[in-house]
Nucleic acid binder design. Sequence first.
RNA 1: UAAAGCAAUCGAAUAAUCGCGCCUGAAUAAUUUUCAGGUGAGGAAAGUCCGUGCAUUCAAGGACAAACAGCCGGAGAAACUCCGGACGGCGUGAGCCGGUGGAAUAGUGCCACAGAAAAGAAGACUGCCGACGACUUUUAAAGUACGGGCGAUGGUGCAACGGUGAGUUAAGAGCUUCACCGGCGGUAUUGAGAAAUACCGGCCAGGUAAACCCCUGUUGAAUGCAAGGUUGAGUUGAGGGUUAUAAAGGUUGUCCGCCUACCUCAGAAAAAACCGCUGGAGAUUGAAAGUAAUUUCAAUACUAGACAGAUGAUUAUUUAGAAACAGAACACGGCUUAUGAGUUGCUUUAUUUU
RNA 2: GUCGAAGUGGCGGAAUUGGUAGACGCGCACGAUUCAGGUUCGUGUGGUUAACGCCUUGAGGGUUCGAGUCCCUUCUUCGACA
Length: 118
Amino acid sequence: MLKKQYRLKNKSAFTATYRVKNSYHKGGITLFVGLLKKDKNSLTKVGFVVSKKTHKRAVRRNRLKRLMRESCRLALKSGELYNSQKYMSLIFVGGEHALDKKFSEVRNIIKDLLQRLE
RNA sequence: UAAAGCAAUCGAAUAAUCGCGCCUGAAUAAUUUUCAGGUGAGGAAAGUCCGUGCAUUCAAGGACAAACAGCCGGAGAAACUCCGGACGGCGUGAGCCGGUGGAAUAGUGCCACAGAAAAGAAGACUGCCGACGACUUUUAAAGUACGGGCGAUGGUGCAACGGUGAGUUAAGAGCUUCACCGGCGGUAUUGAGAAAUACCGGCCAGGUAAACCCCUGUUGAAUGCAAGGUUGAGUUGAGGGUUAUAAAGGUUGUCCGCCUACCUCAGAAAAAACCGCUGGAGAUUGAAAGUAAUUUCAAUACUAGACAGAUGAUUAUUUAGAAACAGAACACGGCUUAUGAGUUGCUUUAUUUU
RNA sequence: GUCGAAGUGGCGGAAUUGGUAGACGCGCACGAUUCAGGUUCGUGUGGUUAACGCCUUGAGGGUUCGAGUCCCUUCUUCGACA
């Protein structure tokens, strides 16, 4: 789990990120990217979403969110962020196909998505 | 030994590394950051099917209406709740299941098709009879397109106005004729009561109330913690703004006037903060009362409280090589549904041995 | 989290107080018309079976002689509240 300062919080911040319409997709996970940073010192905030339409049971949705958070944390720790720090906000949206994946698969997908950013 | 029934219990464990929410303490200007310590999801947290507390608004007297409940007794804050019993049904049995008031204390509706007739004791089908009256033939009697008597017979249907057998009769029929059975009412006894048992009676009364309805009982109504309360940055409007006692600046050099800062009041109010927010109709253990549900008393411990929303990842070992159903969002009592591998106790049936 | 509505052939959508489920339209198949296609007209069309029959209104029970309809439990879908 990421600490509070790295998390994307408000509803308006989420809608603002979606409105940019800059997205990447792989293996059931979609990555939405926000605008470029104006102040270089501010932190890049990350949000995780698995909607109720994806699956009905809360346990399986929480599981996917936790796997995505953990893999994101490890990426932050090891410095494999590539160009993601240029942007103000990132949102990972979990889909139906990602529900049954193991941790190593999810980690590879997220690593790949972060590499694609320019 | 096998197969069942009922009840209870458990709801993975240990170690290492990395990591998160909340609380406490220390450092710090600080609500930030760092360090240390503590603590962190269920038996159903679920479905939202019932019932409460709590909060706000309206009402507060009486009656009706409406909704809900519906064998009896008890428990409980209450409940489509629980316990014990009655009756009915299922099972060889241990046991299990039941929305179980009223259809002779009122009334209405419906019962398709078929059928004579579907609820008013009725006779238009198919039939039976010819005792009585009438008529015909004949005079011992026989017969019937008559007046009538009958409701047994046939077929229909979920259901045909008690059932089976005998007697009686012209033919027949519960026909206050008989035997047995079912149902109804009354009386007596037993029981706290539901009800049970016995006797007597009249002589039979269709089904449906999860159709309207009747009876008895209960309930103020509505909205749900996104309830609701407190503080309120910025903004808007009104008044004051050298004419009260402090008071700045702009518009042209001065004055008036106007505007702003500033002061007072009012409304509305965030992507803000705090309260509500977890110690309770509670849990465990023991004792007493009770068949039990439960109640009373005593002791013990109390350890989620988030707000894009905390329990995860990797490795190793073990049970069973890879553990089911499943995630708190104000709280509690039930019900219902989902659920892996086991463990324990009591009971029943069958088989074998002694 | 709270509240509300719906579920019927391949699709839309009927079925009045409980009484023969699938009207009607679209689609699909076959045939006719045409040199050919379209249009138009006719017939058929839930599943299973050789046929009779049996099963079927999201699923499972109940009440009833008889449930799409009445009652209970449950599943799925949709909507409202910010």
